[in-house]
């Protein structure tokens, strides 16, 4: 007996079932942030695009959305994820030793769309752990460096101890083809670098606003200030992209937790053009 009323849906792999991944490398970034390299024990997840995230499962503890921070040009199926401890799940994930197994599903969400900056200037602004989702974007741009004019990275943290990817940052700074500004909100006397908000170097950077694509990730207040500054300088709001964060339980648009007004951030984000984000960020408690 067939039923006309009921649609027949194609059977696909369960999007809520995590794929086991073994921790093959564990790198401490800061006192509370760790980068894990995760190799699938079976088949790998589909390749990710810069800006996307996965849902990582610490067995028995829970699951959280984490941005992919690795190299998008790598083809080994290894996931690289940078995780800051903010609760029990992130504590369990960052505490997983090499050889331990976690679950991962994804990748989900929108990407930075770095190629859209080809022929123009690319500006990345990251604060604190916000550098994690920007790293793949920078790596992608550097892998195709000739396609871009200026590549500028403005990276900030509360203090020098909270700067992630320090080694890599040092390597980037030595390159002539990428302009790297590192700044911290506060530092002791032995910090040789700049003490300032990320908006300061951003304000000074030479830009051709109409041909600039800016990618922002960090605390919401940082995003709003940097975006306002870029808009003031004439960068169109559609070419300023921001990565937003909300509570997520499923990552696939079914749990309803990540709503920000009309946006389901797991699906319509995390990367959103500032033109779409600004009206939502302007409303309190949305």
């Amino acid at each position: 007996m067939t039923t006309a009323a009921a649609p027949t849906h194609a059977r696909r792999p369960d999007p809520m079932t995590p794929v086991p991944h073994r921790v093959i490398e564990r790198r401490r970034e800061t006192h509370d942030t760790v980068t894990l390299r995760l190799a699938p024990t079976g088949s790998a997840l589909p390749p990710f695009r810069p800006g996307q995230f996965t849902m990582l499962l610490a067995p028995g503890v829970g699951e959280v959305p984490i941005s992919v921070s690795g190299d998008p040009t790598a083809t080994d199926g290894v996931l690289e994820q940078t995780i800051r401890v903010v609760g029990a799940v992130t504590r369990a994930l960052t505490g997983t030793p090499v050889g331990g197994v976690v679950g991962a599903r994804g990748p989900y969400g929108t990407e930075w769309d770095v190629p859209s900056a080809r022929g123009g200037d690319l500006v990345l602004v990251g604060g604190g752990c916000g550098l994690a989702p920007l790293r793949p974007a920078l790596l992608e741009a550097l892998a195709h460096r000739a396609h871009y004019r200026r590549v500028v990275a403005v990276l900030g943290a509360r203090d020098p101890e909270n700067l992630v990817f320090a080694d890599q940052m040092a390597r980037w700074r030595r390159r002539a083809d990428v302009e790297v500004h590192v700044t911290v909100d506060r530092a002791g006397p032995d910090w040789p670098g700049r003490v300032d908000l990320v908006t300061a170097p951003l304000a000074e950077t030479a830009l051709e606003p109409a041909r600039t694509v800016a990618l922002l990730c960090g605390p919401e207040v940082m995003i709003r200030r940097c975006a306002a500054l870029l808009l003031d300088r004439g960068v169109p709001a559609t070419r300023v992209r921001v990565s937003l964060e909300r509570n997520m339980k499923c990552g696939i648009g079914h749990c309803g937790h990540c709503q920000l007004g009309p946006l389901l951030l797991c699906r319509d984000g995390p990367v959103v053009p500032y033109s779409a984000a600004a009206p939502q960020l302007a409303v309190r408690e949305l």
Partner: peptide, 12 residues
């Protein structure tokens, strides 16, 4: 149907 089965990841 549209929410749980209509998107990119239908809920099995």
């Amino acid at each position: 149907d549209r929410v749980l089965a209509g998107g990119r990841y239908p809920d099995p």
